[in-house]
Design a protein around this nucleic acid. Structure first.
Length: 822
DNA sequence: CCGATT
DNA sequence: AACGGCTAATCGG
């Protein structure tokens, strides 16, 4: 050991330590998988003071002389450098104040206000390690080259500890196949939710992406499975788990809701035995902290990913499932479900009985870890790519919302445009911003009816391409240099102007993202799905799209650093302009415009040929600026539009149905209503038979009436959006929750209420009970409600389009179902 | 029956 | 802790 070295490594995590100075620590691995800690003490904390340029000398002199004495030391600036920067496009004189320790910033910022010519202070709210990643442009999992000295430091369980002289980006190569460990715990829960103060952890399962599988438990049973390991007690279980983590030494740890359940639970149980999990590469303990209402669990140097958080924040808009529990998500993403036969709520009973029952729980637990690692295998390429585009740590990015992803992406790139990072808005700004609204997209009134040969077009990435084409940016709006800038269509009688001379910060970045994505798509077209690069490149393309599409929303987001309501309003104004223009053009060409929404246009060909439509779109595109393009989206043999916006169904040539907005896609409708609607749509659009559709409804009604429908099919999902006390109007789901609460069930805001309307007296709310209560008390669903308030309304809308009124439909059904509606 | 709430 | 547009059931006076 010892001596100068050049070391190439891939960072996985970052933090800093501070004693006399601050030292950045990069935790990572060499290509061969040797663990590395790289220490960089050359990076100096700083912030900016914006001042009146006329007072520059006086200001520098004043700041230079600031001294704050504390018990241990004297805090003062290390150096001051004058910069000409921009703050949201406006030129400013900024003094960069270098300090010794990151915590000095929050102390000095108070004294700095007295500076002559003081205007503002910025970048005080960027934490030190984030600052480092932004300034250095280092990306996680991407190769770095470090010059430095290998030092002996027993504090770290790493193969190499290097004190860096310099670190630079190597050739942008990405770390392949990190060792990932997934785990899941089962706890004793005799009264519903387990109580970490009393109820022990019963077993822990582990599954990795390299084949290691294990379940540890402390109650023996007749066992033939090789992955089961018995220990003597809960304490031994916790110790053994900790031992395995240390031995397997994973590069990433993943759990499902592990931030808010598994890790806090393990932590509290371990505390009881005065046991700690010293898993950090620096031998530090597993650390739990709060972020708003959520907990997060951190292991220094070993990124812990809570894949549930990632799915909920980033993936949810693309998922169909209404709940994000492991079963539903795995079912949709992997086509695989949790093990049958074990109900989460019954684990205590299974445990107490033991034997065969316990064996089932062990299998169940094993499967949970396996599903978690499989989800991770599927989603890790996306997390990895997003991490690199956003430019922050894996730990942070995997927990970010769309707004945060955009924010740190912009922060990373601001300096290249000489832009300072604006401060986070203070609370009072946020509340005024929340109350401000602006006009959104245009939705064309549909022509109700059934149509054939429908062509759908849409603008490729409408909002991103508008931002680029019209240079929409907080840095270019109301510029001083252009008398004749890009003028938006009128917005509430006014028009906003954007600079034509200088390309804005955000449009430049977005232009770059769009071009990068197009290049990737070109490559993807050429390579095979099995190609090693395919997964990475398609994840990259998806990650870029995600960021690009979220930028518009970020402009209108109340907590945004680059908030610009005028920008958001301008984008939608241009959007309305373009889609209306396309509608006009289509009409001029003699097409029958059926519908349009935001960025899409639906026309029916009638007696026209497809070539005429191609000519039309060609002409449209000839006249569109820059990156904007109207694309062919699809051709549909038949489609139905009801007398409402955002609700239609289309059938393609392969017999697939695409349904938008109708009950079928809504979670707040029962499965029976949705399935019936789907079957009716198929009968009408694919088979072309209303007769068949009527038969389907008749059959459903009969089955409902006979009590032959499962509870699952009559359950309705509605989210509890606030505390029960705070509801003014008591809807069915709230009413069900209130009744269940009296029986000891607890409810949190954000929780999904699954309820069933049962037979009995009173209003619909009075008759609504949560699914568990219905099962426990053997209540029966109310067929009248499901027929009249669920199934019939869902299909009546469709028949109305065919010219069949509600009464006529009921008549048709009645003739088939003698004497039912009496 | 109708506006407010969800 | 990303935007607005939109429909529709149900409550509650």
């Amino acid at each position: 050991m010892g001596g100068k070295t050049i070391l190439e490594f891939y960072p996985f995590d970052i933090d800093y330590i501070a004693d006399k100075t601050a030292t950045i620590r990069l935790f990572g691995y060499t290509k061969e998988g040797k663990s590395v800690v790289v220490l960089d003490d050359s990076f100096i904390p700083y912030f900016y003071v914006i001042i009146n340029p006329k007072k520059k000398e006086k200001a520098v002199e004043f700041i230079k002389n600031i001294e704050v004495k504390t018990e241990e030391r004297t805090i003062k600036p290390l150096g001051i450098h004058v910069f000409e920067k921009k703050l949201i496009g406006n030129p400013v004189t900024a003094l960069r104040v270098d300090v010794q320790l990151p915590t000095d910033i929050s102390i000095l910022k108070e004294y700095i206000k007295e500076t002559p010519g003081y205007l503002d202070r910025v970048e005080i709210d960027v934490s030190f390690y984030k600052r480092y990643l932004i300034d250095k442009k280092f990306q996680m999992l991407t190769r770095l080259r470090c010059n430095g000295e290998i030092i002996e430091d027993k504090k770290y369980k790493a193969d190499y500890v290097v004190l860096a002289d310099s670190i630079e980006e190597a050739e942008g190569e990405v770390y392949e196949n990190p060792r990932i460990l997934a785990f899941d715990i089962e706890t004793y829960n005799p009264i519903g939710n387990p109580r970490p103060s009393k109820d022990p952890v019963l077993m822990i399962s582990i599954a990795t992406n390299y084949g290691f599988e294990k379940v540890i438990t402390w109650k023996r049973f007749e066992n033939s499975k090789k992955y089961v390991e018995f220990v003597e007690s809960e304490l031994d279980l916790l110790k053994r788990f900790s031992e395995i983590i240390e031995k397997e030494n994973p590069q990433i740890i993943v759990g499902y809701n592990s931030d808010n359940f598994d890790f806090p639970y393990l932590h509290e149980r371990a505390k009881k035995y005065k046991l700690s999990f010293n898993w950090g590469i620096d031998r530090s303990k597993l650390r739990l902290s709060r972020r708003g209402i959520n907990k997060v669990a951190k292991i220094k140097g070993v990124p812990h990913i809570d894949i549930y958080t990632f799915i909920k924040n980033i993936l949810s808009p693309t998922l169909k499932t209404e709940v994000y529990d492991l079963n539903s998500v795995a079912s949709e993403l992997l086509g695989e479900e949790k093990l049958d036969g074990v109900d989460w709520t019954n684990i205590a009973k299974f445990w107490d009985v033991g034997g065969e029952n316990l064996s089932k729980v062990v299998d169940y637990s094993m499967k949970d870890s396996i599903l978690t690692i499989k989800l991770m295998n599927k989603l890790f390429p996306l997390i990895s790519e997003l991490t690199r585009i956003v430019g922050q740590s894996i730990f942070d990015v995997s927990r970010m919302t769309y707004g945060q992803c955009v924010e740190w992406f912009l922060a990373k790139n601001a300096a290249s445009f000489n832009e300072l990072i604006p401060p986070k808005p203070i609370g009072s700004y946020v509340s005024t911003r929340i109350n401000k609204t602006y006009e959104g997209a245009y939705v064309h009134e549909p022509k109700p009816g059934i149509f054939e040969n429908i062509v759908v077009y849409d603008f490729r990435s409408l909002y991103p391409s508008i931002i680029v084409s019209h240079n929409i940016c907080p840095t270019t709006i109301f510029c001083d240099c252009c008398k004749d800038g890009y003028k938006t269509p009128p917005i509430g009688g006014k028009s906003f102007s954007f600079c034509k001379k200088h390309k804005g910060f955000v449009p430049s970045l977005l232009d770059d993202l769009i071009n990068r994505r197009m290049r990737i798509k070109e490559i993807l077209k050429k390579i095979h799905k099995d190609d090693v690069d395919y997964t990475i490149l398609s994840a990259r393309s998806y990650a870029i799209k995600t960021i690009a599409n979220a930028i518009y929303g970020y402009f209108g987001f109340a907590r945004s650093r680059w908030y610009c309501l005028e920008c958001a309003a301008s984008i939608t104004a241009w959007g309305r302009y373009y889609i209306k223009n396309v509608i006009e053009q289509a009409k001029k060409y003699g097409f029958n415009v059926l519908y349009a929404d935001t960025d899409s246009l639906f026309i029916s060909l009638d007696n026209k040929k497809l070539e005429e439509a191609e000519k039309f779109i060609e002409n449209i595109n000839k006249n569109l600026p820059g990156v904007m393009e109207l694309e062919f989206q699809g051709f549909y043999t038949r489609g139905i539009f009801v007398a409402a916006k955002k609700r239609y169904a289309l059938a393609d040539m392969n017999g697939n149905l695409i349904i938008k907005g109708l009950e079928w896609v809504r979670r707040d409708w029962s499965k029976i209503a949705k399935d019936t609607q789907m079957a009716v749509l198929k009968a009408i659009l694919i088979d072309g038979s209303t007769e068949k559709a009527v038969d389907i409804i008749k059959d459903t009604i009969k089955r409902l009436k006979d009590g032959n429908i499962s509870l699952e099919e009559v359950t309705i999902f509605t989210q509890l959006t606030r505390k029960i006390e705070n509801y003014e109007s008591i809807g069915p789901h709230v009413s069900a929750a209130i009744k269940a609460r009296e029986k000891g069930y607890t409810f949190e805001p954000g929780q999904m209420i699954k309820y069933v309307v049962v037979k009995g007296e009173g209003s619909i709310s009075d008759k609504s009970y949560i699914l568990e209560e219905v099962k426990d008390n053997k209540l029966e669903y109310d067929p009248e409600y499901y027929i009249n308030n669920q199934v019939l309304p869902a299909v009546e809308r469709i028949f109305e389009v065919l010219g069949v009124t509600k009464d006529e439909l009921r008549g048709k059904i009645q003739t088939k179902l003698e004497g039912f509606f009496r």
